[in-house]
């Protein structure tokens, strides 16, 4: 008989399998982005992915490290970065963003597993700080709808509508309308390439949760907190939009389902993950209501990324631990 020490339950998990699982989970939203924004969405995503993989490959080649550029993690970074930019961006925007994400936010920190910040979000923060006019001023309507999600209002995305035109009665009366919420849920509104469709992102994420490639606790904590806080703010009159509007608009689903759950940059314990998700959702709502930006998802997750080493100390009691 062969006897080995624990752990006795094994899974045939490896980095490649998990990473390509996430890539598959992102596919519904990717196909949706082509449907909503046309082939340019695919073109920008392709450029972003190629740059991410190439940057990782060249860095590892030049510094004579083990080549892990094809394990899928760079592909995810590339896709997520492209999902975070508007479709009218010039071609070099995803290229520069991906390059920064992989080189500075990932490889300089030691590569996969050592990066503090989610590379795609760091890349987004970089392009956001560098070219705000492109990132926030060039929205385009989906091919079969309007930018705002409401007929007749074509000036702004739902979140910009909330930030800039929240006192306009024409907007107020329709911001929580079923028409608006339906368009937000399906993704038929203006926004970044991959963030608009809550439905398609959810389909991918459920696959991840079933395969246990991502922890539902973070997502439920994040999106649930946005919902609850938005509800409280709505009832107290701090925001004219209801909780459903808040969770479906902007990048809450993309961030809460795919970026906050990144295995490297989220805590390892269940308790830590709850805190991570809930605090992230809270920060997102604070930015949305009182911050200068209409959207706070990316900064809230980057902010919580910094606390991961601290949250990893929130752990269950060891078996047999003696109280000092």
């Amino acid at each position: 008989m062969y006897i080995s020490s624990s752990p006795h339950i094994r899974k045939d998990w490896n980095v490649k399998k998990i990473m390509y699982g996430v890539v598959i989970a992102l596919m519904p939203a990717f196909i949706g982005s082509i449907y909503f924004f046309g082939w340019r969405a695919a073109y920008l995503t392709f450029l972003s992915v190629v740059t991410a993989v190439l940057t990782e490959y060249l860095f590892q080649k030049i510094t004579k490290r083990k080549i892990t550029a094809f394990d899928g993690s760079a592909i995810i970074t590339g896709i997520l970065l492209a999902f975070n930019i508007p479709v009218k961006s010039p071609w070099w925007l995803p290229v520069v963003g991906s390059f920064f994400a992989i080189l500075v936010a990932k490889q300089f920190f030691g590569g996969l597993g050592y990066n503090i910040f989610n590379p795609a979000l760091a890349g987004r923060a970089f392009v956001m700080a560098s070219w705000p006019q492109i990132m926030t001023g060039r929205w385009s309507a989906p091919l079969h709808g309007s930018i705002s999600g409401i007929d007749g209002i074509t000036s702004a995305t739902p979140l910009n509508l909330l930030k800039l035109h929240a006192t306009d009665p024409a907007v107020l009366s329709r911001i929580n309308s079923p028409e608006m919420l339906k368009n937000l849920f399906i993704g038929n509104v203006g926004g970044c390439i991959g963030e608009t469709s809550a439905l398609l992102l959810l389909i991918g994420a459920i696959f991840l949760f079933v395969m246990r490639y991502a922890d539902w606790r973070i997502s439920v904590g994040y999106i649930g907190t946005v919902f609850v806080v938005a509800w409280i703010f709505y009832l107290t009159g701090l925001t004219p939009a209801g909780p459903l509007f808040h969770i479906l608009s902007g990048g809450v689903f993309l961030g809460g389902l795919f970026m906050a759950t990144d295995m490297v940059t989220s805590p390892v314990t269940p308790a830590g993950r709850w805190i991570f998700g809930i605090a992230g959702g809270l920060i997102c709502m604070l930015i949305r209501v009182w911050g200068g930006y209409p959207e706070g998802v990316s900064y809230s997750i980057l902010f919580m990324n910094m606390f991961v080493p601290l949250l990893d100390r929130v752990r269950p009691k060891y078996l047999g631990e003696v109280k000092k």
Binding site: P90, A129, S130, W131, I134
Partner: peptide
Amino acid sequence: NYPVLFMILPP
């Protein structure tokens, strides 16, 4: 037309 504004910001 499109300088890397990031560079002259604190980060």
